[in-house]
């Protein structure tokens, strides 16, 4: 057989197959249950409240807080600058632009972290990136960031640094007074909490 005929016999049927498959199935990035389980298990979706507090205090423009509770709860209290996307409306078309993007760090929060985690899992399954879950939710936020408890005298310096940071963050975010904790060494600078958000690198280069 002539090479051209052989080539045509191979690539034309393959082309017909690929053309017959619905476009959204060719261009998907859906995770398999295994992959999703692995991602959920490693906890990379969680962003620590200290990181969020730091971003809020620094007025980091890339942070976008998303409240997945009901509108009533949102009206009663919401975190500064948060937008409300109730979990039941998560898949509405009007929110797709907010959830499927690569410019902002989206942080889901609910009272605990269950609903926020559900929102993350759904968006992750849709192939969206840059969505995270506020670790501990609003309950932890209130109890530990906005009204932090002073560490005991025998705590390591890091605990005092964390406490000082949370105290000043709480003051900046409304509530609490700025009184540094009595630490073992006098000058402990607030340690910037490590950023856990891991962004995928855009590849560069060509031929």
């Amino acid at each position: 057989m002539k090479p051209l005929k052989l080539l045509a016999l191979i690539i034309i049927p393959l082309g017909i197959i690929i053309a017959a498959i619905p476009a959204d199935r060719v261009n998907h990035s859906r995770l398999s249950p295994d992959e999703l389980l692995q991602e959920a298990g490693t906890g990379t979706q969680f962003i620590s409240p200290d990181v969020v507090a730091d971003m809020l205090v620094q007025k980091d423009p890339s942070l976008r807080l998303i409240d997945v509770r009901t509108p009533e709860e949102f009206d009663a209290y919401s975190m500064p600058g948060a937008v409300n996307i109730p979990l039941s409306n998560l898949l509405a078309d009007e929110y797709t632009d907010i959830l499927n993007q690569d410019a902002y760090v989206n942080v889901f929060y609910s009272n605990g972290s269950v609903y926020a985690n559900q929102a993350w899992m759904i968006t992750r399954q849709l192939g969206y990136v840059n969505n995270f879950v506020l670790e501990g939710g609003l309950n932890y936020w209130f109890g530990n960031i906005l009204s932090p408890e002073a560490p005991s005298q025998t705590s390591p310096n890091e605990e005092f640094a964390k406490y000082d940071f949370r105290k000043s963050a709480a003051a900046a975010l409304g509530g609490g007074s700025v009184v540094p904790a009595e630490s073992v060494t006098p000058a402990v600078k607030a340690v910037k909490p490590p950023v856990t958000a891991r962004a995928k690198k855009k590849p560069s280069g060509g031929c």
């Binding site: 034309i12 393959l14 017909i16 690929i18 053309a19 498959i21 476009a23």
Partner: peptide, 19 residues
Amino acid sequence: LSDGLFGLLLILAAIGMFI
């Protein structure tokens, strides 16, 4: 067009050019 349909058209165009 969908990626797949464009792919098929490109294949047909390529075969045509080869001929």
